[in-house]
């Protein structure tokens, strides 16, 4: 099997995720798109891990899964908080960062 199979799959998923982050308005959807990006990275890591016969890739894939879980937890909590305060999680209505 060509390693490019996996790497290209990862690339496609990554770019779809990037599109999602940019295009989506709903905060939950943005978080989902971020999950896509993280998974694509994991696929790459594991592909290289297998290519080189090295366990490091597996290790980092596991770490990324753990970090992603933490990220989703905190992210959704923040979304919840924002929703409670504003009755909306449309990201384009949140412009506190506007200067």
């Amino acid at each position: 099997m060509l390693i490019n199979n996996f790497l290209l799959l990862g690339a496609v998923l990554f770019c779809i995720g990037v599109y999602g982050v940019i295009a989506r308005k709903n905060a939950v959807m943005v978080l989902m798109s971020i999950e896509l990006i993280l998974n694509s990275v994991n696929i790459n890591l594991l592909a290289f891990s297998m290519l080189h016969g090295n366990a490091d890739g597996n290790t980092f894939a596991l770490y990324i899964i753990a970090v992603a879980a933490a990220e989703v937890g905190v992210g959704l909590a923040m979304v919840l908080l924002i929703y409670r305060n504003r009755k909306s999680i449309a990201l384009d209505e949140l412009s506190e960062m506007k200067g």
């Binding site: 290209l8 990037v18 295009a23």
Partner: peptide, 24 residues
């Protein structure tokens, strides 16, 4: 569910995909 200018994401994603595919 989408932003007003969500189409902006398309060129960004495509350029990124193009670069990555090319490099790979």
């Amino acid at each position: 569910l989408n932003n007003r200018n969500h189409l902006l994401g398309v060129p960004v994603a495509l350029v990124m995909l193009g670069v990555i595919v090319w490099v790979l």
